[in-house]
């Protein structure tokens, strides 16, 4: 039988979907769903960039350049932001899938389906963050959904704050989803799966925190 990728079903009835996935021999709709996810990623990033979210580093140049040039700079910056967002989404889909494929015997395409689901969650998080970023000027590390806020009260270490900020309701959901799907589609021991899932997600969080901590943009 074949498995039709349906994101809502996959997210909210994971047990049923996982078992169907496990039993399926063919998977339909991966590329359409992938394009859809990427399209949504593009749109969300576009909206966010359009409002200038994240372009504080350009603001001081408002006195140095003409109005037209200033807007142009922001537009180009926005292009970069959108590209980054799409790259991240792509990585979220395919990288964990790759790791899981190495450590388990599940077909890669099935793991990509899991990747699509988790990517959808991350997009949901991004969408819910936009109002907070726009109206309250909060950055990702100060998301009300994550541990970054508490971290800022507890420590002064920037890296730690970024790391804890990456641990949010949504990222934990993603991790849980990884675990459940793997559990229901493979024979491997739960303990092993837990380890794999934890380390993969942890790796992602640390990598993301590093990327935020090292301000690459000042090099340009």
């Amino acid at each position: 039988m074949f498995f039709q990728v349906r994101l809502f079903r996959g997210l909210f009835s994971p047990y049923v979907a996982a078992h169907q996935l496990h039993k399926a021999e063919q998977i339909h709709g991966i590329w359409t769903r992938t394009s859809m996810i990427l399209a949504i990623s593009l749109i969300l990033a576009g909206i966010s960039a359009f409002f200038g979210i994240g372009n504080e580093s350009l603001s001081k140049q408002i006195y140095d350049v003409s109005a037209a040039e200033f807007e142009n700079m922001k537009a180009l910056f926005a292009v970069g932001q959108v590209v980054l967002s799409m790259l991240i989404t792509t990585a979220l889909i395919f990288f964990p899938a790759l790791v899981f494929w190495v450590f388990t015997d599940i077909e890669y395409s099935k793991l990509v389906v899991i990747g699509l689901l988790t990517a959808a969650i991350s997009l949901l998080e991004k969408a819910m963050l936009i109002p907070f970023q726009l109206f309250f000027g909060l950055d990702e590390a100060s998301s009300p959904f994550g541990l970054g806020v508490v971290a800022q009260y507890v420590t002064r270490l920037e890296f730690l704050i970024q790391l804890l900020g990456n641990i949010s309701i949504f990222s934990i959901w993603m991790m849980v989803l990884h675990y459940l799907y793997l559990k229901w589609t493979t024979e491997k021991k739960n303990g092993v799966l837990l380890l794999i899932v934890l380390s993969t997600n942890l790796f992602i969080w640390i990598f993301s925190a590093l990327f935020s901590y090292i301000k690459f943009e000042v090099m340009l």
């Binding site: 580093s57 037209a68 142009n72 590209v83 980054l84 340009l220």
Partner: peptide, 25 residues
Amino acid sequence: LSKTELTTMPKKEILRYIGRGLLTK
């Protein structure tokens, strides 16, 4: 936004700003 201003911008500048957007997280 100005299309003409954009064309007069040196390519290096254009890439620089795109790059900054790409690296800011």
